[in-house]
Design a protein around this nucleic acid. Sequence first.
DNA 1: GCCAACGTTGGC
DNA 2: GCCAACGTTGGC
Length: 134
Amino acid sequence: MNFWLVKSEPTTYSWQLFKEQGKAKWDGVRNYQARNYLMQMKKNDQVLFYHSNIGKEILGLAKVISEAYPDPTTPEKQWVAVDLVPVEEFKKTVKIEQIKAEIKLKDVLLIKQSRLSVMPLTKEQFDILYQMTK
DNA sequence: GCCAACGTTGGC
DNA sequence: GCCAACGTTGGC
């Protein structure tokens, strides 16, 4: 079991829309580092969903239901997509300031490499973030 | 709206 | 292969 965090601008694709649709194709990624992480995702991996720009918070938990396949939004062969489904909506979201304020989360790539849109979390990082929603 | 960070492109 | 220029992202 692996743990991930994916980022989306709510004006582009929001958690609310994800929840309504009940499933998302995580496509359109055009960054090699993010692409490489998408390719490592396995079925049932846990994925935290973060809103960048507006909100700047983790709103919910998703899981992987389809592992990487060719991205249908481009004819270029090098890009991939995965399918995610919502699992849980957090009553308490986790704001970026809270993440920054927690010393144990200082190595989370969201902080260190803010432009990356798909990133791995260690189990410890995931557990701490998840606890912060309770 | 600004700017830092960073990825990509293209000239050499 | 290097690096300047440029575009994009995202926090503030």
